[in-house]
Structure formats: structure tokens, C-alpha cells
């Protein structure tokens, strides 16, 4: 069953067309890789799907519901969560508060509850602790998030995105800027999250080793256009892709 359907999606900024007529599907259980050279429009595509930006044309369907142009917060509550390319955290809150804030939308009290009881806080922090444990941040729980190392901040960003129990998690370059050990560690956490929680994932990533290790399917974007789609091995050997993108990277991969 397809979870996310992107149909002829387009987004332009003034005269610049960042995403041009892109269509693809994400099936339940997929780990889809989205690759492409710098400026190809990957982040823009993420922003349009998640509701941070409105599409100029085209349609996005999530769980058989049209979500095109719908505000991001609503899309998240329906089960589609995303991370940002830069480390995106609450720098002045503690690590545990950061993760707990991610659970608020899914908590039962809503906007107008929890004034005279601490139950919601205890539940939020309990859930947050499980996440911190998963991402190896338990010992950092009471530090300010700004005091974490860059790699830890990136992991915390993923933990926050997972806190609202998404069905589909979209990761924008999760391992960028991490050293090889950190990257491998995060990759194994993502694999665990996928198998244990059954979260479908889409990942933008330049790091081919990570893409090869995690993704069952890859789509390639170049100048806003989808130029190839297939298994990682198929895509890597596709001449169009090599020309657009892997020409220089294939050596390292």
C-alpha cells in the first residue's frame, strides 16, 4: 500500500523552478533514499511535502488524504514528521525538555488540559526518556541542548521528530557533518526504529555508504527533475545518474 503519493509536484521561487513536475510514491515499510547534487531541490521537496512551503502546482497525498498546502502542524498530527538539514533543537531547554516538547502534540491533554495536574509532564518525560535512551543521550538528559556536541544535537533533532509517533519520518541529511563512527551509529539506530516501531522513512543523504546500507529504494533529483528511480545498485549504475551526480562521488562510494 502506498503511504505517500507525490503527483506532478512543482515549486518555484520567482523565476527559479526548484522542483519541477516530480512524481513518486513511498510504500509502507519503505526506506526511500532521495539523492541529488547540491541545489537539486531535495530540501524544497521536503518542505512542500511537509507543509512548510506551499506547492506551486501538483498534489501530495498522505494515507489517502490530500495534504497539499496544508499547514505543517496538521500534517505532523496526521503522522508525517520531518527533520531539518541543520541541527534544529531548542538550544536553551534541557535535552529531556527538548524530547518532551516533541510529544506535546500527541499527548492527550490538548491545549486546554493539564493545568492542575502533573500527569501529562510525567508521561511526556517518560516517553522522552525512552527516546533519549534509544539515541544514547540519557546521560546528557539534564544538560542544555546547546551544550551537546554537534553529533549529539543532530541525534536529538531526530529524537524530537520521532517523539510525536510518526508513521512516516522524513530525514534531511541526518548524518551530514557526523564522523564515520557517529554516522554508523545513527544508521543503526534508524534501522532499529524502522524495525521496532514500523516507521516508514524517507531520507535525503549525500553519504552514499549510508544510503546503500539503509535504503531499499532510491529516487534521484537533478535540477528539480526526477531523473531516476530504483534500487540503490540500479541507481548507482544508471548512466544518467552518474552523469548528473555520481560522476565525482562514485569514486568515494
Amino acid at each position: 500500500m502506498s503511504m505517500l503519493e507525490v503527483d506532478s509536484l512543482k515549486r518555484s521561487f520567482g523565476g527559479l523552478v526548484a522542483v519541477r513536475d516530480v512524481s513518486f510514491r513511498v510504500n509502507e515499510g519503505d526506506f526511500l533514499g532521495l539523492i541529488g547534487p547540491n541545489g537539486a531541490g531535495k530540501t524544497t521537496l521536503f518542505n512542500v511535502i511537509s507543509g512548510v512551503l506551499r506547492p506551486s502546482a501538483g498534489m501530495v497525498r498522505f494515507l489517502d488524504r490530500d495534504i497539499s498546502g496544508q499547514p505543517a502542524n496538521q500534517t505532523v498530527r496526521q503522522g508525517l514528521s520531518r527533520t531539518f538539514q541543520a541541527a534544529t533543537i531548542y538550544p536553551d531547554a534541557t535535552v529531556i525538555e527538548n524530547a518532551a516538547r516533541g510529544t506535546l502534540a500527541a499527548s492527550l491533554t490538548g491545549l486546554w488540559g493539564g493545568f492542575f495536574s502533573n500527569k501529562w509532564r510525567i508521561a511526556a518525560e517518560e516517553k522522552a526518556f525512552h527516546l533519549l535512551d534509544l539515541f544514547g543521550l540519557t546521560r546528557r538528559a539534564h544538560l542544555k541542548a546547546r551544550e551537546l556536541s554537534y553529533g549529539e544535537q543532530r541525534r536529538l533533532g531526530v529524537a524530537i521528530a520521532l517523539a510525536c509517533d510518526p508513521k512516516l519520518l522524513m530525514l534531511d541529511e541526518p548524518v551530514a557533518g557526523l564522523n564515520p563512527e557517529e554516522a554508523a551509529e545513527l544508521a543503526s539506530v534508524l534501522r532499529r526504529v524502522k524495525s521496532e516501531r514500523g516507521v516508514t522513512m524517507v531520507m535525503v543523504e549525500h553519504h552514499m555508504r549510508t544510503v546503500m546500507g539503509l535504503c531499499n529504494r532510491v529516487v534521484v533529483l537533478d535540477h528539480g527533475t526526477l531523473i531516476a528511480e530504483g534500487t540503490p545498485t540500479e541507481v548507482v549504475s544508471n548512466p544518467l545518474v552518474i552523469e548528473a551526480y555520481l560522476g565525482k562521488e562514485a569514486v568515494h562510494a
Binding site: 511537509s50 512548510v52 499547514p71 505543517a72 502542524n73 496538521q74 505532523v76 498530527r77 514528521s81 520531518r82 531539518f84 534544529t88 533543537i89 531548542y90 538550544p91 536553551d92 531547554a93 516538547r101 516533541g102 506535546l104 502534540a105 500527541a106 524530537i160 521528530a161 517523539a163 510525536c164
Partner: peptide, 17 residues
């Protein structure tokens, strides 16, 4: 407090900021 500190992230956590 979350909205004040990082509105984009709060929005992306499912909260109508």
C-alpha cells in the same frame, strides 16, 4: 515557551504556533 525558542521546530512537532 517552545514557540518562542524555535517556532519552526514547534510547528514541525505538530503544534499550531
Amino acid at each position: 515557551a517552545a514557540t518562542a525558542e524555535n517556532q519552526r521546530l514547534t510547528e514541525s512537532s505538530g503544534i499550531d504556533t
